[in-house]
Structures are given as structure tokens and as C-alpha cells.
Design a protein around this nucleic acid. Structure first.
Lengths: 345, 345
DNA sequence: CAACTTCATGACAGCGCTGTCGCTTTTGCC
DNA sequence: GGCAAAAGCGACAGCGCTGTCATGAAGTTG
């Protein structure tokens, strides 16, 4: 029971293989009666086009790559982040009959450009989706564009006006988070910045400053610590911030992993969250709900962004019209257990 | 600058395209001097074989699928689990020049067999790696085997003697965990079982019983609660176990997610871990280190298992000899912060 | 109704490789 | 040195599709 080929279908339907091809690919200019005839033959034989033959003849692979930073190698596991992105890309691919090839890589490699070049040239991708933080790194973008592979970027940090880039309102969402904390009575609101390589995360610091300004609170750099997005760094920054007796009443970590680190330190030091200290994060990765108390955070609609980016990519591949503007997906505040009224001072 | 084809290389090297093919595929029966000549031409032209053409001619796709349960749809996020498996499969694929196609699916679907059939028949896979818990579900295995696609399973729950199955010593590792707890003075050791669909996890309960028996502790079914692998269910079970004043001194949840749930409840109830209650899990997913206190658990070498399974699969595909026995990768105890001496009674 | 255009279809030539087979040259062995 | 076996290489026919172009039928227009 070898798989049916296009010839088998053509024979059964009494048409040429080209007509079968037309029906299979939903091309126009086929009479309805013919279309039905062919469709029946396809169903009868359970015909599935051979993708390799299709690819060879049409010079398309129907394969989309997802390139992301493989943090697992550095034991900075933010698996939830990656999974969400995969899931979004996947759903867009499925809808358009593309398959998804994943490509973890590490931007910390010296010759990342070379690695990317290899990756792309070896494998038969029609297009590539680039996930944060890679999506904001110029050398990487350049390396990809040099290969000529169509690219879409999930780039929360990007404020460039470009096609095939999906962004989010990180900055204003951070300002909003500060507003929320102020509304709970907090005045000493600390901030933990992220990894300097991650543009998306850098943006968040600006939002924090915006928020302070809106509430006429002066920026106190003693309340700002630099992390690198990892839990460990969150812990380190929290240790610094909570050392004195006059510690801040709220800590705003610019990602959830670091906020989780802050919570670990609070537990260790016996500082009750949120009664004595509010802790908030950013991203809304699964971990946010797994720690105790569950994190108040900003939900970054990663999955939606990834899906949108992939849709854009596929439209580009199919030469379908694209909207000109970069696509913006809104982030929004999620209040959980880790934030509360500022303690009386 | 169109991509060089095999003809270009043949012309430059002054040989036939077949010889180029031989060199490119490292086939035997090519004189060294010829091989060098061709290799040089390949390098000069930066020739990369067209995968689609290769696939069409050789009836292989060089594509391996990874099928796993997409828990994100059910908000039971154990992303770390999936990522680890992906990572293992990926590394084996890379080593052998295969590409990886991911296929999240949901076994809770009614017609999963049909979905799998579609999936496999539509896409051009050479082989499939099946991840837990799917890897222990007979209807799923059957559906795949019916399609005839070569299969390798990462099946911690399987004790069947089969080729292309990678298992681990879950049961004895659980017994070992009980031994460890007993060595800390614990006598009332509760257990939280996992989702009944997950065979791997069912096995663990047996290991728990083994452990009790080894230490001459009678099984007290009041200390056994049934969870479903989710954090939420861990919380529910913990509420039940910690309700009375005479609660157990240790809780052994058969996966880390549920152990994290137990910890959440302990925090909420003000029961100090590990001083008043030891909590241990199983799997060693990233979350284990992210909660406070960090979980004592058993490290299941998922990545290694996934890699091994993929290697086996590829050897099968390449018709290389396989060892007959199922492959076993050892799990091992990881002591962290959540376990300690039993409190005095 | 002639002269177009549009629609519906098929013939055929590849896409860039690999598998098969046959031919020539080299190697191994008594 | 002679002969069989093995090694080294190339010619050629596909693999199963899609793109291009040709052809004839049907529809449109002044």
C-alpha cells in the first residue's frame, strides 16, 4: 500500500496531473465539476502531496524556523518564556500548513553570525521567526538579513517602524505598574533592571522612571539595582535592597524570574510578602503563579505576539499584502498575591 | 549568486555528479585524491546539497518529529519538562544532521489517534520521538505504529523490554527517597500520587511502598492523596494532609509541580519548611530551584533520556545495529533546602 | 458574426539530487 | 604473471511534484 501519487489521482479522476495539482493547491481556473471529481479522487486514495517533491519543484520548503536563545545552557531556565513563543508560532504555522523547525542557539557565542549563517544555509527554511532577546540584537539581525531569508521579529524592545516586527507597550506598562504601586500607598519603590544585552528589558527601566515622574517621586538611584534576568541575580539585588532596616516597601523587578528571586530572599529573611513588602514582576511566565505568594506582574502576550509575527512572516512569504505599521500587542497588569498596601512607616 | 548545485561542483572538480554525491554523503569507494579534489570544489563554491532534492531522490526527509503533550492548553504549565526533552532531542538531531519538527498535541482529545495519523501522514517525518506521558499510552503508540513511522519512546514508566525505548529507575529512586527521609528520622511520610493516565508516575507509588516496606513502616492510606500532577492538585492534597494537628512530618509528592503546591500551602498555613515539614518532589524541573525553599527531589535525566532515545531512533533509521536491551538512564537524589530532620514529636 | 479576450485544461520540461548498473582500473593471491 | 574480486567512477533514469506554455472551448464586444 504505497502512498498514492499525483498520477494515481489523475488517472482515477480522468484528468491531467496538472489539474490535480491545481485542485490540491486551490488554484483558480478549474471548473467546479472538475474540482469535485478531483477532490473525490483525492479523498478516495487518501492522497497527500509529497512535500519534498513540492519543495523541489516550487523552491519552497514550507518550513519555518524559530530561532531563540537557549538559556538552558547557562542554567537561566526561563522555559515558560520559550514555550509560550513556540506555542504561538506553532499555531500560526498549523493554520497555514507550514511546519516548525526549532533552533535554539546562544548569542553569547563569539561567532554567532557564522553559526546563524550555517544554520540557515544548511537548513531549508522559507522564513525565520526571531525571538527575544535575539530579536533586538543588531549583529544577529544583520547576519540573518544577509542570508536573504525572510524574517519576522518578536521584538518588545523595538520601537523602530518596520514591517514584520511585533512589539508591545512595555514602557507604558511599566509606568502603569508604578502607578498601581503608588495607588497602594507605596513611595519607596525599588527597581531591578535586567540584562544589559536585552533591549526589551532596558526599555522597562524607562517606563519605571516615567511612572515615578508621573507621580512626582524623585528617582533614587540607591533603589535601583542591576540584575541580569536570572533568579540568582534577583536574589543578589534583593539582598542589597533589603539589607538596611529602612528598606523599600515595594520592589519592582523587570522580569518575573528576578521577582521570584526577590521572593526567595524575603522568605529567607522572614519579611512577609505582601504585608511588609510588595514584590512585582514582569512577563507573566508560568512561574509567576507557581511561587508563593503568586506574583503580581504584567502579562506580556508572548503567545499572541509570536503568532502575529508568524502570520506576518507567512504573508510575506506568500506575497500577500502586509499592513505597513509595526504590530503592537498590549501588555496588561495582572494583580495576584504578592502586592498589597504599603505598610505604615 | 544562485546557490551552487551538484553540477557546478562536478564541473569544477572534473568528476561526475555521482562522485560529488558520494563525497558529500561520505560514501566509500572514492579514491582519496578524488575526494580531496571534490572537497575543495565543494568548499570553493560553498556548496550545500538541496535537502528537498535529497529527500525526493532518497525518500528520506531528514526530519524527526517530537510529539509531546501540550499542557499549556490546560494551564498545567510544566514548561521546564518539555524544554529539557526538546533540548535532548535537538542535540542528537544536530549531531546527525537531522532537523527537528515539534508537534505539541493533547492526548485528552477524543480522536487523538486520528490527529496523530493526520499529523504523521501530512508531514514528512522519517521518525518520531514520543515524550511522556504520551509515551506510555497504548492507543497512541498503536496509532503511531499503524502509520509505520519508526518510533522511539522516552518512557520512564515502561518496564517492557523493547527496542528504542529509554527508561529510568523511577521505582527504585522513589524507594531511595523514602530511605533518605527515614534516615532523617521521618516516620509519618505522606505520598501524593500523580495523574492516573501517567504510567510513569504510577510506578512511583510502587517505589514509595517499596521504601516503606524496606524500613518496616506500614502503609497508612490516610497519608496517601491522589493528585493529577498539577500544582493546584498538590495544594489540594496538601490541604488534606495538613488539616489535622497530627500531620505527617514529610510529604513526598511524586512530581515537582505538586511538591511546589505543597510548599505554597505550607507557606499559607505558616508551617515552616523544612523545620516542621519536609517536602520532596520528583523530576528536578527548573521550578524545583525556583521555589523557596528549593526542593529536594530526584533528578530525572530527561535531557539525557531524550538524547538517547533520539540516537536510537536515528540508528534505526540508518539501519545501524541497535543494542537489544531497553536503555536505562539512572535517576538520582538531589538534596536541597526543603528536607530536614524530622521534628521531635 | 468576426475578432477578441478569458477560462479550462493538458503536455512537457525540469527542480537537484540518489539508486542502479555497467564499465574500467586496481588489488590480492596462488 | 594470470585471474578473480574489489574498488573507483560515470551514465542515466527517475523521485513526485510545479511552472510554462500551448491549445481549444466559451464568453464578450461593437
Amino acid at each position: 500500500m504505497a502512498r498514492a501519487t499525483i498520477d494515481d489521482v489523475a488517472r482515477l479522476a480522468g484528468v491531467s496531473i496538472k489539474t490535480v495539482s491545481r485542485v490540491a493547491n486551490q488554484e483558480p481556473n478549474v471548473r467546479d465539476s472538475t474540482r469535485v471529481k478531483v477532490a473525490n479522487a483525492i479523498a478516495t486514495l487518501d492522497y497527500k502531496p509529497n512535500q519534498s517533491a513540492r519543495s523541489l519543484a516550487s523552491r519552497q520548503s514550507f518550513l519555518i524556523g524559530l530561532l531563540y536563545d537557549d538559556q538552558s545552557k547557562y542554567e537561566i531556565p526561563s522555559a515558560g518564556y520559550v514555550i509560550n513563543i513556540q506555542s504561538g508560532v506553532m499555531s500560526a504555522c498549523k493554520a497555514r500548513n507550514y511546519d516548525l523547525l526549532i533552533h535554539p542557539c546562544t548569542y553569547r557565542n563569539k561567532d554567532i553570525s557564522k553559526e546563524i549563517d550555517e544554520l540557515i544555509r544548511h537548513s531549508r527554511l522559507d522564513g525565520l521567526v526571531l525571538a527575544p532577546p535575539l530579536s533586538d540584537m543588531l549583529p544577529i539581525i544583520d547576519a540573518i538579513e544577509e542570508t536573504g531569508v525572510p524574517l519576522a521579529r518578536i521584538a518588545p524592545g523595538s520601537n523602530v517602524n518596520q514591517q514584520c516586527v511585533v512589539t508591545t507597550n512595555d514602557r507604558s506598562a511599566c509606568a502603569n505598574m508604578v502607578n498601581y504601586l503608588v495607588s497602594l500607598g507605596h513611595k519607596r519603590i525599588a527597581f531591578i533592571t535586567g540584562h544589559p544585552d536585552h533591549k526589551a528589558v532596558a526599555n522597562r527601566y524607562l517606563g519605571y522612571q516615567d511612572g515615578l515622574q508621573e507621580n512626582a517621586i524623585a528617582l533614587d538611584t540607591e533603589l535601583v539595582q542591576s540584575g541580569d534576568n536570572s533568579i540568582k541575580s534577583g536574589e543578589k539585588c534583593a539582598e542589597a535592597l533589603l539589607a538596611g532596616k529602612q528598606h523599600p516597601t515595594a520592589i519592582f523587578a523587570c522580569n518575573d524570574d528576578m521577582a521570584a528571586g526577590v521572593i526567595r530572599v524575603a522568605h529567607r529573611r522572614g519579611i512577609r510578602v505582601p504585608e511588609k513588602l510588595s514584590v512585582v514582576g514582569f512577563d507573566d511566565i508560568p512561574l509567576a503563579q507557581q511561587v508563593f505568594p503568586a506574583l503580581t506582574t504584567t502579562r506580556q502576550p508572548l503567545k499572541a505576539m509570536a503568532k502575529k509575527a508568524t502570520e506576518l512572516l507567512i504573508r510575506k512569504l506568500r506575497a500577500e499584502p502586509l499592513e505597513a505599521a509595526p504590530t503592537m500587542v498590549e501588555s496588561s497588569l495582572v494583580v495576584r498575591e504578592s502586592s498589597g498596601k504599603s505598610p505604615a512607616i
